[in-house]
Design a binder for these strands. Structure first.
Lengths: 233, 233
DNA sequence: AGTCCAACTGCCATTATTTGTCAGTTGAGT
DNA sequence: ACTCAACTGACAAATAATGGCAGTTGGACT
């Protein structure tokens, strides 16, 4: 195996976010431990965020993927259009993440002869979508980590309520963002407009995916409902 | 210089889309021609789309960028959200490009512990935006390459007209796509709704960026107009 | 058909890099 | 004080990369 291949392999191994010992990696790749130390050195020198702690092991600081990959010109356009839309449409966290992507990709894509971006877009349709998105980073974290949330919700007919929910998915509808969740108060799936969520905080307890209460169940439920509507019309 | 560095350098050099001779590359990187042949071999073996033609030189088949880069988890989400939106919102060419990006990125991002996508989105708001986008690939090509187009346009008040235009930029407005262009008929900037373009074909002649007729001029013009509106309100 | 060009190939001696071994040191936790 | 595992330096052995050379090949042009 080539050295460069091995470096990629090491990243693959470490990328699962668990702790790894140089000894184990060495064994897996059939090289000596010393070589692994050297390899990790060069990886770190090349910007891969691996943390080594003496007496502990190696850990990847943040989830990365770093495949050298090639995008076609159209794919590049799709990418930058998408990031531009996200910048307009989503909350600040995602927005700056999108900037990050553009920066990382653009840096390398820029020195082409002619790569004028072929699009732009109007802003006013999006302004509404940006309102009241301050909860989104927390919502995303809750979805990722399975945290139950307590929310104060003001429904469209101005009814206020407090609920404990299991956040499943945020949805973008062109004008507004909603949160699909399992509502423990109503014992059913509910979609909440994010701009109508008055307050939102972790309850401290978390949840596991549970049959009948997962996002897949919800999507199936919605699909069935749409079918019924079609039948009756 | 390390071999791996040199390989990256070669890609950088070849990426300008022009023709390159192994001799020149060798000189630039201060290695022998033989080495360059070997390097190109390994690049091709690694999937870099370099075409070598005997008696001619090397050419990069499609514009690529291939930096090994690392994205944070949020950046990954921004990326996939953006691509999902593009898939809903844009024409088939961009749509499949977006799929391509997702495939390339997702492949490497998948074996994380927990990376459920935290969002999805409703479709009905976007359906309108997808109508009548069959011209878009041609429009993008015209913008990139500076091709004049002849179009049949049906304005919103049902007035039909034929024009020769210099396409400058496509714009996404949340519900519809428009094309900003310099109209040679009206001698001014015009925005056309793409779903109202009945027919569209290259005239065969092309145009160079010309002072007063570029996209930057148009954007400045629009910005000034908006300022005036603010003043008068 | 012949000629030119530059990509390509195979071979081999030379040079550079990578590797393993070994004998340490360091820092954190127990 | 002890253990663990990351780290470091040195050196010889193994491996890979390189340059030079003498070809071959395919396309384009005359």
């Amino acid at each position: 195996m080539q050295r460069s291949e091995r470096l990629a392999e090491i990243v693959e191994i470490v990328r699962d976010g668990r702790l790894h010992l140089a000894r184990d990696i060495a064994e897996a790749l059939e090289v000596s431990v010393r070589t692994i130390y050297r390899d990790i050195d060069t990886l770190v020198a090349n910007g891969v965020p691996i943390d080594g702690e003496r007496g502990v092991g190696y850990l990847l600081r943040e989830p990365v993927f770093l495949p050298p990959m090639s995008l076609s010109l159209v794919e590049l356009e799709a990418l930058s259009l998408g990031m531009a839309i996200v910048q307009e449409v989503a909350d600040e966290e995602l927005q700056s993440a999108a900037s990050g992507v553009i920066a990382k990709v653009g840096e390398h894509a820029s020195n082409r002869r002619n790569a004028p971006k072929s699009w732009g877009f109007g802003l006013y349709e999006f302004e509404r979508a940006r309102e009241g998105l301050s909860h989104m980073p927390l919502l995303r974290r809750a979805i990722r980590e399975g945290l139950k949330l307590r929310i104060d919700y003001l429904s469209l007919d101005e009814q206020s309520s407090k609920r404990t929910i299991r956040p499943l998915q945020t949805d973008y509808w062109g004008k507004v963002w909603t949160l699909s969740a399992w509502c423990e108060l109503r014992r059913g799936f509910r979609a909440f407009r994010i701009d109508r969520i008055q307050m939102c905080e972790p309850t401290g307890s978390s949840f596991q995916p549970e049959a009948g209460k997962t996002i897949e169940d919800y999507l199936r439920h919605v699909a069935e409902q749409m079918d019924r509507e079609k039948d009756s019309s």
